[in-house]
């Protein structure tokens, strides 16, 4: 098995996001709250929910259309920011 650049970028991004979330948590501890999502969430919950939703969005995209995967990736990035801010 050969490790490829796309998978490396994927995992490095996830790792950096987790590191960023950890630093953010240390600097400014999260406060559970209820936003647009129908449940009380911490920042980590919202991050997890947005990542998981992003994965499912990609799968749904592949199921329903042949359009490039950059589109769901962009939607996921915007969605992640929105969930973290208002979720």
């Amino acid at each position: 098995m050969a490790w490829t650049t796309p998978t490396a970028i994927f995992f490095v991004t996830i790792f950096l996001l987790l590191c960023g979330m950890t630093v953010w948590e240390v600097v400014q501890p999260t406060v559970p709250r209820k936003g647009l999502l129908p449940l009380v969430t911490t920042r980590g919950d919202r991050f997890f929910i947005s990542l998981l939703s992003g994965a499912w969005l990609h799968l749904a995209w592949m199921f329903f259309t042949d359009i490039t995967l950059w589109v769901p990736l962009a939607i996921m990035a915007v969605g992640m920011a929105a969930i973290l801010r208002w979720g």
């Binding site: 098995m1 490829t4 998978t7």
Partner: peptide
């Protein structure tokens, strides 16, 4: 590893 396999 599984992710890597899934793309090859």
């Amino acid at each position: 590893t599984v992710v890597n396999y899934s793309l090859q």
